[in-house]
């Protein structure tokens, strides 16, 4: 059972209040009509899906209903940080940094 710190509520709450929404920081192409099928397909469907650290988007569905980001290890399930939408992660998924 995760205890997740919501950066808006500024409290730890139980996993069931939240929903995971997949990979974070996916930028919508600024001009969708100019995208090739490949670029648009990559944006819609292709994901990093790492075994290890992952930046992901969550929503506090049964709480403040705001979206925020989590950096989490997908193997140990350790939550390294949570941060607001628009902020950048402090923990890098690149092991070299």
């Amino acid at each position: 059972m995760f205890h997740i710190y919501c950066p808006y509520c500024e409290e730890h709450r139980e996993e069931e209040e939240f929903h995971a929404k997949g990979q974070a920081h996916i930028a919508r192409p600024p001009a969708p009509d100019d995208c090739s099928d490949r670029e648009w397909g990559e944006f819609l469907y292709f994901r990093d899906n790492p075994r290890g650290l992952h930046h992901e988007l969550w929503v506090h569905a049964a709480g403040c209903r705001k979206f925020f980001n989590i950096t989490r290890d997908t193997q140990t399930y350790e939550i390294r940080e949570t941060y607001k939408i628009g902020d950048q992660p402090a923990v890098s998924t690149n092991p070299d940094q």
């Binding site: 996993e15 995971a20 992901e56 989490r72 399930y77």
Partner: peptide, 13 residues
């Protein structure tokens, strides 16, 4: 479980 995971264990809820 709704989140990505490689842990081969599921959540209690």
């Amino acid at each position: 479980d709704g989140y990505n995971g490689y842990g081969q264990r599921g959540s209690y809820p």
